[in-house]
Design a binder for these strands. Structure first.
Lengths: 251, 251
DNA sequence: CGCAGTTTTGATTCATCTCAATTTGTGTGG
DNA sequence: CCACACAAATTGAGATGAATCAAAACTGCG
């Protein structure tokens, strides 16, 4: 538990110039659908990139909120922890996804964002983003879409946590990763998990042993092959049926 | 199950003029913090109110998204259902809260919103809201805050579903309601539940029997008094300790 | 006043957690 | 390069909280 907590290096990472117009993630990320000229205006706003080593925090619950972050490369998790020691992973973020929207409401971050591998983000100062989106309707609209998408995603997680059993949750999780890797041009069926069993468990509302057992079961049934963090999905359709029992509910 | 589904009355309810400037919820709702002149501009935009009878849908998953809705009076639930018959209540909304933000991302609603008692909402055409918020920075910012708040709320629900046991979930639920009623000038300790045990259960990831048992247990322990839907919290501090075991975790 | 929907309560089953031991993998320093 | 220590993952056995199945009681609506 609290695997990387000791990593309190106050270095904010290297800073380097970022430019949406040059970025191959622009169609996945915030500047989606912008015209050339508007893209250039985004460039001037983006506050520069920031590199993080594995285990480093991008921000912590309690930090003042100033920017959103776009994941340029790497992999993150976000988690919430309460005074009474509960710890819930609320999401895993990969290239092109936006981090930090939790902070807008009270100008303070309400969760922690941690790099699960060496990563790089673009900083998007929020005040400037609002100013710019007042002037560029399509940017404003896309920002709203991104926030709404996060809400819809959260509903999906609630559904998962509220109605699914362990193996269904894990199947849903793997299929979701598969789909997101695919969207980024990677293999739908073979990938490397950046998080531990415990982090997966926290996200799925399960204990790490339960996650491990579910992996083993899937492997025994020929659905996937697991070697530690290396996953290969052998039968995607069959994995989907884990989620959707033959008839209605209760297979 | 599916208690009010038969209520497919296609009447969209009475339409009546709504005005933020006259509304006593304005400090709780979207126009929070606006100046008089801007408030007047909101008024011209608000598409008119809409009344719903208990059981009526405000919108359904699949409906085209056109507006957000502000709850003017009454009580709603939102729920998601999947092809395979899973059904998850994602939230309960009361006066001053905003409904429909799930629809922005794909221009189609992804959940159902149902009135749990006779209710009234204000319609906020989204295209116009975006246009107006381009011109009124404080409106734009507040819209962002409202969406962010929804994301943070969702994280809270994930925490609840992912880490709490049945009684903790119910205690958290009751305390949350209590706090929201208080913010609206109602009693913190005595209120009427608008939803069934099954709906509470769906929201909390529990079966209705479990919800009922937890209520009974709380009553036996003198924490609350329950008479069907009428709830009186007898000992708020003690109810809070259900949530926060004496020491760390595992009481 | 009766009926349908809702709630309560009990008995039993089952999925996941807990506790515990072992194996595997990873990074470090001799 | 190998050995060691530590972190992560697997696996097993048993405990437990919530689900399930079932029946009875209550409520309020028509």
């Amino acid at each position: 538990m609290h695997a990387n907590v000791k990593n309190v290096i106050p270095i904010s990472g290297h800073s380097l110039k970022a430019a949406c117009s040059q970025c191959n993630l622009r169609e996945l990320c915030l500047p989606f659908g912008l015209e050339e000229s508007d893209m250039a205006r985004m460039d001037t706003m983006i506050g520069g990139g920031r590199k993080l080593k594995r285990g480093q925090h991008l921000y912590r619950a309690g930090d003042a909120f100033e920017s959103l972050f776009a994941v340029k490369a790497g992999f993150f998790k976000t988690d919430v922890l309460t005074e009474d020691g509960r710890d819930q992973v609320t999401g895993f973020q990969m290239a092109g996804e936006i981090l930090g929207m939790d902070g807008i409401s009270v100008e303070v971050h309400t969760c922690n964002a941690v790099a699960l591998e060496d990563s790089e983000v673009c900083m998007i100062p929020f005040t400037q983003l609002e100013a710019l989106s007042s002037e560029i309707p399509s940017l404003q609209h896309h920002l709203h879409k991104v926030m709404s998408r996060e809400i819809v995603r959260d509903h999906g997680v609630m559904m998962l946590l509220g109605t699914m059993r362990a193996e269904e949750r894990l199947a849903a999780f793997l299929l979701n990763l598969s789909q997101r890797f695919t969207a980024r041009g990677y293999s739908p069926s073979e990938f490397h998990l950046r998080m531990t069993r415990e982090e997966i468990g926290s996200y799925l509302g399960l204990k790490l042993e339960t996650v491990s057992r579910a992996f083993s079961r899937f492997q025994d049934e020929g659905l996937i092959s697991v070697q530690q963090k290396h996953i290969r999905i052998l039968d995607i359709p069959k994995l989907k049926t884990v989620l959707t029992p033959p008839d209605g509910r209760i297979g």
